[in-house]
Amino acid sequence: MVSVDLLINAIVAGILLGGFYAAVTVGITISFGMLDIANIAQPAFILLGSYASYIITYYVHVDPILVGVLMLPVFYVIGMAVYRLYYYSFELRGEQSIQGLAFFFGLLFVAEVSLVLIFGVDYRFVEAPYIGPSLHAGIVDLPLRMLIPCLVSLIMIALLQLYLSRSFIGRAILAVSQDGLALQLMAASPTRIKQIAFGISVATCSLAGTFLIIIQPIEPSIGRDYIGRIFAICVLGGMTSFPGMVAAALLIGIVESITATFYGPSWAPAVAFGFLLITLAVRPAGLAGR
């Protein structure tokens, strides 16, 4: 018989995990979902965010999430520079499909090797008052290490959603994801808008990386574990929709958590991806796809 305590805690743990998954996927939803750029180097940018938090908190004793927020503009600029390089090297020549993919693969490996050369392969971690303690609300345990990244992640995504739906540039990003040519006819530069959007997608890695190093110690290759999962969540969410992506991330988190609790942790990834396949069979455009 299923214990109610265990079920509720499994759902809560799934939501917290889903919040983190949403943070690591939001950048891919922008770059892959909206801009059609298969940025498989996203985990490398996330790890860069983790190492930025590590190195800054190592020398200056400040909160890692504050570091993640302060580093957002730096990552934004990095993202814009990477897009420029990608644009001139591939997109401009119409070679973005295979060569562009190879470019991001290369970027992933170069970033990983650079991190190995700079930091070595030892596990790195940060210290914060919320790593370790838990809140106990009745029968529910809320590890702060998972709760705080989940909350900050949802706030970040809500702000991004507001930006996309209310600001001129945000709307232009949504427009470029639908029809770049139409946007050009309205005297807006799709390249410039895509550059800003790609900058935002990489900027989210600053916070996502910080969450990652809060949740678990990191080493340079750990990002690879997330490649499949983040693309799966993006597709399940409907590619371009933030609410859809958040719903997908929470669903995957909850499915993984319930499976791990009641049927065995080894089944968790298989059940989560099985769930993805079934959903796509029933609804090929994803949860919030049009």
Binding site: D141, A260, P265, S266, P269
Partner: peptide, 20 residues
Amino acid sequence: DKTYPPTTTDYSPIIRAIQA
């Protein structure tokens, strides 16, 4: 008596299931 994948992110469901 269960195995888990080494790529697991959150181990709390495993610990809760054990505690149960």
